[in-house]
């Protein structure tokens, strides 16, 4: 546990990809791929409000511009 905690203090979950998907309600959604410190890539879905807020937080003009940013940017727009 302590080794893992130590690894966390030097590693952050990072956005490694983003693409669009169809939401169940007919709206487009943003699918973010996040790589966690354990190396596993998980997925987070954002709606338009959160998705555009994230792009603004990251000063990203494109979905590709989100790659490499810390997961904390996702919280910034909230």
């Amino acid at each position: 546990m302590s080794d893992y905690a130590g690894a966390l203090t030097s590693q952050e979950a990072v956005i490694v990809g983003a693409e669009l998907a169809a939401g169940h309600d007919g709206e487009a959604e943003l699918v973010l791929r996040i790589r966690y410190p354990n190396g596993v890539v998980g997925v987070v879905l954002l709606d338009a409000e959160a998705g555009f807020a994230l792009m603004q937080s990251c000063a990203a003009d494109s979905l590709e511009g989100l790659t490499g940013h810390s997961w904390r940017k996702i919280l910034e727009g909230v």
Binding site: L8, T9, L45, A50, I74, L75
Partner: peptide
């Protein structure tokens, strides 16, 4: 603080959406 951070990073359905 680190524990809260980790919980938030694992649960963005609660802390973002």
């Amino acid at each position: 603080d680190a524990a809260i951070d980790r919980i938030k990073s694992y649960n963005m359905h609660i802390f973002v959406m």
